[in-house]
C-alpha cells in the first residue's frame, strides 16, 4: 500500500506539472462552463420548468447539454491521462529502475490509476461546483435531493471516466509505443461512442426481422448496453430525471398504473444498479488483464 501511495503521489505531481494536463483541464472547464452558462440562460428565458437538474441535461439549441460534455469529453480525458502511463516509463528506461526498488508491479499500476482518478475527480467535481454556483446566482437553488443527485451524477461520471482510464492503462501495457496506445484508445472510444449503437440495431434487425416486436427492441437495447457510453448515458439520465422510472420498454397497459411523481434518489439508484455494476466491472476487467499481462511481461532496457 505504501508503494501504491508513493507512486500515486509522484504521478499526481507529474500531472500537475505537464502542459498536456493544463491544456485539457482548460478545455474541459471552458466547454463545461459554456454549456452550463448557456443552459442557465435558456432556462431563465424559457421560464417553463425551472429545475436545477435540468441545467445538466437540457439543451438550448446553441450548445449540446452539459451531460454531453461528460459523455464525449470524459472518455477523452480518461484516455489522455492513461495512454502512456506504463509504456512511457518503458521508453524512457525508468521502468526497470523503478521496479528494481522494493515495489510490486501491481502497486505501480494501482498508483498510476489512483492519481488519474484523483485528477478526474478534481476536474468533474470542480466543474460541477462552479456550474452549481452559477445556477444558484440566477436563482436556481437546488434542494437536498437535487444536491444528492448531483453528487451521484458526479460519482457516476468519475466511474465512467475511470473505466476509460483503466482501459487506456491496459493499452499502455499492451503496446510499446505511446502513439500506438493513444490511437488504439481513441479508436475504441470512437467505436463505442459513435458506431456501437447503429451496429447493435443492425444486428437486432437481422436476428429479429419484425420491427414492432418487443423482443427486437429489448435485444437492441441490451446489445447497445455493451458500450459503456450507453450505460453511462442511461444511468445519468435516470439520476438527473427524478420522474424517470423505466429503462426497458414497457407496454401502455402497464403505464396506466404509473403515477407521474418524482422518485426518491434511492429508488432511482435502484433502477440503474445493474448499470453501475457493469461500469465497475469494466474497470475491474481492465485491471485484472493489466495485472496478468504486466506481471508476466519482460522488463528490459
Amino acid at each position: 500500500m505504501t508503494g501504491t501511495l508513493t507512486v500515486a503521489g509522484k504521478e499526481l505531481s507529474d500531472y500537475l506539472g505537464t502542459k498536456r494536463f493544463w491544456f485539457f483541464f482548460a478545455i474541459i472547464y471552458v466547454a463545461g462552463l459554456a454549456a452550463a452558462y448557456l443552459g442557465i440562460q435558456g432556462l431563465v428565458q424559457a421560464r417553463v420548468e425551472r429545475s436545477f437538474l435540468l441545467l445538466f441535461r437540457a439543451t438550448t439549441g446553441v450548445l449540446p447539454p452539459f451531460l454531453f460534455f461528460t459523455l464525449y469529453f470524459g472518455p477523452l480525458l480518461g484516455v489522455a491521462l492513461g495512454f502512456d502511463s506504463i509504456n512511457k516509463e518503458r521508453a524512457k528506461n525508468t521502468l526497470v529502475r523503478l521496479l528494481s526498488n522494493p515495489v510490486h508491479r501491481d502497486s505501480v499500476v494501482n498508483g498510476k490509476f489512483l492519481s488519474g482518478v484523483a485528477i478526474v475527480g478534481l476536474s468533474i467535481f470542480g466543474i460541477l461546483g462552479i456550474a452549481s454556483g452559477l445556477a444558484i446566482r440566477v436563482g436556481l437553488v437546488p434542494n437536498l435531493d437535487e444536491l444528492a443527485r448531483l453528487v451521484v451524477f458526479g460519482a457516476l461520471t468519475v466511474l465512467y471516466i475511470a473505466g476509460w482510464l483503466a482501459l487506456s492503462q491496459l493499452l499502455s501495457i499492451l503496446f510499446t509505443h505511446t502513439s500506438t496506445s493513444a490511437i488504439a484508445g481513441f479508436a475504441i472510444w470512437g467505436f463505442f461512442t459513435f458506431f456501437w449503437t447503429p451496429i447493435a440495431s443492425l444486428v437486432a434487425a437481422n436476428l429479429i426481422p419484425d420491427p414492432s416486436s418487443l423482443e427486437r427492441i429489448s435485444l437492441e437495447q441490451n446489445l447497445s448496453r455493451i458500450s459503456p457510453s450507453v450505460l453511462y448515458l442511461e444511468a445519468v439520465l435516470v439520476i438527473l430525471t427524478p420522474t424517470a422510472r423505466f429503462l426497458n420498454p414497457v407496454s401502455l397497459s402497464e403505464l396506466q398504473y404509473v403515477i407521474p411523481n418524482p422518485l426518491p434518489l434511492l429508488q432511482s439508484i435502484n433502477l440503474i444498479w445493474s448499470h453501475i455494476i457493469a461500469l465497475i466491472g469494466m474497470v475491474l476487467v481492465c485491471f485484472l488483464l493489466s495485472y496478468i499481462i504486466f506481471v508476466k511481461q519482460e522488463i528490459r532496457t
Partner: peptide, 21 residues
C-alpha cells in the same frame, strides 16, 4: 521474495533512465 531482496540490492541498469522533468 522479490521485495525483501530489492531492499538489499542496488541495481544500475545499462540504459539508465531518470524522470527528465
Amino acid at each position: 521474495e522479490p521485495l525483501k531482496l530489492k531492499r538489499l540490492v542496488g541495481y544500475l541498469p545499462e540504459n539508465l533512465g531518470f524522470y527528465d522533468d
